[in-house]
Structures are given as structure tokens and as C-alpha cells.
Amino acid sequence: MRVGVLLYPDPVTLTAPPRLLLVHAHPDDETLTTGGTIARYAAHGVHVTVVTCTLGEEGEVIPEGLRGLAVDAADQLGGYRVGELRSACAALGVADHRFLGGLGRWRDSGMAGTGANAHPRALVAGDLDEQVAALETIVREVRPQVVVTYDANGGYGHPDHIRAHQITTEVVSRVPDIDRFFHTVASQGAAATGVRALSELPDLPFRLPEPGELAVVPDEIITTAVDVSEHLPAKLSALRAHATQVSVWQSGNGSDSYAASYALSNGIAQPVLGREFYVLAAGEATGVETDLFGGLFDGRDADAQGTR
């Protein structure tokens, strides 16, 4: 089958494509941290499911002409971001997108310590058991071999990212047929290299980050670096789809791995890197260095209904 030949060095017998499920807190998170990974595996025939926990209603709006959507104005940003997310998923090749509990069930909780944390539909104010049950239903239906979400700090401490970690971790502990569970992280070394390269590019419209300003982890804890360099055009298209939240810039040198940058509403430049990074939280580590699925299908069926 074509999937095995493309993804793995030795042909394998698959009765169904490999399945990857990612749990993210808000629209745009799927692209910011895992967009290249999604595009790579989708292009190779993997069935990719993205679960988004909220509509991102509390996000700050970058374009002046759309600021009336914000929570302190019309409070219509969540619905608008649904459209952005659909466009981004199409650019990345996502086969299956779900909202946790259904569209609009849980609301963006905002940053820690804000009044939005107490909104009756805020994700962090919601019933954890209900949220776990909603994700467990999806996971048991999709039957992914690999699941991805954030680490215990949610990457940078956002309450919804932390709750997504808690929900997903509990579901992974309940569902026996998940082979690997990963945390998406940012590499300290790769980020530093990317920022240095950005500092040498002319006309960068964003300010460079100060030391310690980007949320990164030490390289020694990273278990997996997925090469997404061939899929950066898809990631950049998806980043542009999230126009209320993300500004994208590219220099004229398309051959430069660090010729693209994005910034959130804070205007801090972040490099668009040719690799995305993960920490294996559970599962067999053999073969994970460059591939979330590495070594999983040697001598056995990829279908959850087959031999496990």
C-alpha cells in the first residue's frame, strides 16, 4: 500500500491507514505548533483527526477592520474563527475535525487570572469528567495509534492548554489501544538558531524576542524531531488562514529555511522552522527519533481491529 512505502523504509501490510489524533485548545494552535506535522502525515495518507476544545473567543484581534468581533465589542470572534479553522484544516489536509463536546460547548477561558476563567462555559470552569468523556468517545471511535497534545504546563501556561493536557492524559490512560502519546514542544536550540537567522534578514516587520521570551524546552528532553521542511508552504497557508490571530511574513529568499516568520498580537517574531518537536510521554520509544509512527507497524496490522 502506498502509505507504507512513503512513510516507512520497509513495506508493511495495512488494511487501514495509520491514524493520528491531536487535541488542541483553540483555533490556530493546531497550525502554530503541529501544522507541519499534520501536513506531512496527511500528505502521506495518514488519517489525521484534530480536536479543538474551544472557539477561541477571548483572542486578541490583529486586523483593525475586524476588531469589532472581539469579546469587548460584538463578542463574535468565536464564530469567525470557526471559518478560519476550516480554511486552515483544508490547507493542512486534515481529514477529520471535531470540537470537544460539539461546536460551542466550551468557551475560551482567557489567560490565567482573568475574569473569563469564571465564565459558565469556560473550559477550565467545566466539568472535567464530562470533558474526558467527550474526548474518550472520539478516541474510541477514531482509534488512533498516536495521540498528541501539550505538556503539563500547556506549552506556555494558558489555562485551556493545561486543561487540554489533563483531559487528554486521562483519556490516554483509559484507552488501551493507543501506541504512543506525545507532547508538542518547542526546541530551545532550534528556536535560538531560527531567531539568529531572522536577525540577519532585512525588513523583518516584527520585533525579535528577548532572551527567555519564547516558550521553549531544553533539547535534551526532546525525543522526536519531525522533518516538515517539504510541507512549510501548507503550514504558511494555514497560518495565513488564522488572520485574526497571526501575521505572516516571508523574505524574498524562498530557499532560506528561516526566510519566513510569524507573530501573534504581541508582535514578537517567531521563525517558521523546518522541524517540529515532541516529547514521548507514553509508549514504545524505539524508532521515534524522526517519526511519530516509527517502528509501530513492523510485522503487524495497522488497523485497530487487527492484531494488536
Rank of each mutant, 00 (worst) to 15 (best):
M1Q: 05
R2V: 09
V3K: 04
L6W: 12
Y8C: 04
D10H: 08
P11F: 07
V12N: 13
T13Y: 14
L14A: 15
T15N: 07
L21V: 08
A25D: 12
D28L: 09
L32T: 01
I38M: 13
A39N: 08
R40I: 00
R40T: 05
A42F: 11
A42S: 15
V51M: 01
C53R: 03
L55F: 04
E57M: 04
E58H: 07
E58D: 11
V61R: 05
V61W: 04
E64W: 01
E64K: 03
G65N: 10
R67K: 13
A70M: 03
A74I: 00
A74K: 14
D75Q: 12
Q76S: 15
Y80M: 09
Y80F: 14
R81L: 06
R81I: 07
G83M: 09
L85H: 15
A88N: 09
L92I: 13
G93P: 04
A95L: 12
R98I: 00
G104C: 05
D108P: 02
S109W: 10
G110W: 08
A112D: 13
G113D: 11
G113V: 09
T114R: 14
H119I: 04
P120E: 11
P120Q: 06
A122W: 00
D129E: 15
V132G: 11
A133E: 15
L135W: 05
R140M: 05
V146P: 07
V147L: 06
V148S: 06
G154Q: 15
P159N: 09
D160I: 11
R163F: 02
R163E: 12
I167H: 04
E170N: 01
R174H: 13
V175L: 08
P176S: 12
S187P: 08
Q188M: 09
A197G: 03
P202A: 10
R207C: 02
R207M: 05
L208M: 14
P209H: 02
P211D: 05
G212K: 08
L214M: 10
V216G: 04
V217D: 09
P233D: 07
S237V: 00
R240F: 06
Q245N: 05
V246Y: 00
S251G: 15
S255R: 10
L264F: 14
N266S: 14
G267W: 05
I268G: 00
V272Q: 00
G274L: 08
E276V: 12
Y278A: 07
L296C: 06
L296Y: 08
G306V: 13
